[in-house]
Design a protein around this nucleic acid. Structure first.
Lengths: 234, 234
DNA sequence: GTCATTCGCTGACCGCGGGTCATTTTCTCG
DNA sequence: CGAGAAAATGACCCGCGGTCAGCGAATGAC
């Protein structure tokens, strides 16, 4: 009977994964606004009621997707950190990695941003939410680590509060990303047409110049990162 | 009969305003998530169907509210511009004015950010949307004007693309503001507790240092703005 | 082999919220 | 007052998140 129980548990986990996969495919083909429980159920060849046996709510399902996506970013961050010599370059490389993931996985990133935008503030608990937050904290930790490294090697000013500075970086980049998400609306509604993609290189320059002990080094670091990866540049 | 027609038009306009006022009161007392057409109708002592005689959709009603709020910001921007000597100081003063309005009118600002977060991308047309966009463009124009002034007087580097830089400023500040909107969730979900309010002074320092021809002047300008208005500082 | 129990699953159903429209009420003017 | 227009109504539709009584198949005891 432990055999049976084990199999049961494995099958349950497999169902859960298949539901997540169904949700991902709906996201890919129909986008966030069409990500309804009915559509997910249809894609998973299950009834809607069944979904609620595996996820407490739609929010929890989305949180599970978000946790998965956030986890996928971490190896890229590690790779980025490995290629950079100074702490300042590490910060820039993390931002580049973020942007590149953005470009290469548009559906996932659109989801993450749409989900953050739609997230209802009051209730945000449950295991999947906690998993998501853990991944975010890991990412922020890599950023704070890079800033600390930069302070130690002299490439980053040492009069900055590390953790607050990491959040300022993270959040201001989020604003830039939001604009890219709404690229078409942005272009339509502004006086002068402007590709939101073009804002990221500028943001990188601005950020690194502000962090650098020597502004010229900030500029050089940003330029090196952008020419090394022209796909993400303007 | 022109008398009658005039009165009719005035009454129609008054109804429209009373609906907007009702919406504003619902927003104040119940928040964005409770801003339903039924609640607005109840607050305006009208039936729901009547609302649709004055606004095409809920989106249009919200756009009208947003246009009104965006318009209220413009005089503050003008006042901020008048107090600053250099272009760099003007940029900082505009950011401060934004932050102060944020603090003094929390309900309106919460609405603006909630609305932006919830806004559905595809369809965004209609007269109220255009009015809103016009106000935003006016605001951005004041920012580009300040940057140009700074280039002219030597306080801001002249190798920056003015318009793109204005947008980078605007959008990165938006990210900071979003964090402040979710202040409590932010504190709960991060490793280290941190008041989101504390991020704005840091953001101001970072931004002005990056823009300034002389980093020291950027730092001094930010410090002067923050000590001059301690309510908005950390 | 039989039968009671458990387990996974179903789909009809609910409430809410945005949006519609045939009907009724109110106003205007001859 | 009465005809026609304008304004307002509220019952109604649909899509969506979420619920639950019940059904059928696998399981295990005898």
């Amino acid at each position: 009977m432990p055999d049976t129980n084990d199999r049961r548990r494995r099958e349950k986990e497999a169902r859960r994964e298949s539901i997540l996969e169904a949700a991902r495919s709906v996201l890919e083909s129909r986008g966030y606004r069409q990500l309804t429980m009915d559509h997910v159920a249809q894609a998973a060849a299950l009834s809607k009621g069944t979904l609620y046996l595996y996820f407490e709510s739609k929010e929890e399902l989305c949180a599970a997707l978000a946790a998965r996506n956030a986890g996928a970013l971490l190896p890229h961050f590690d790779a980025a950190l490995a290629t950079a010599r100074t702490g300042l370059a590490q910060v820039g490389a993390l931002m580049m990695a973020w942007s590149e993931h953005f470009v290469s996985q548009p559906a996932q990133f659109r989801f993450m941003l749409d989900w953050m935008r739609a997230e209802a503030p009051p209730k945000g608990d449950g295991p999947n939410f906690r998993a998501y937050r853990a991944r975010v904290n890991e990412s922020v930790a890599k950023l704070t680590g890079a800033i600390e490294a930069g302070k130690a090697d002299g490439s980053i000013r040492d009069d900055l509060p590390t953790y607050a500075q990491a959040l300022q970086l993270w959040l201001s980049s989020l604003g830039i990303a939001l604009a890219r998400l709404q690229e078409e609306p942005l272009q339509r509604r502004l006086e002068h047409p402007l590709h939101a993609d073009g804002l990221f290189p500028l943001h990188l320059h601005t950020t690194l110049r502000a962090l650098a002990t020597d502004p010229a080094e900030g500029r050089a670091t940003a330029a090196a990162l952008l020419t090394g990866h022209p796909a993400a540049a303007e």
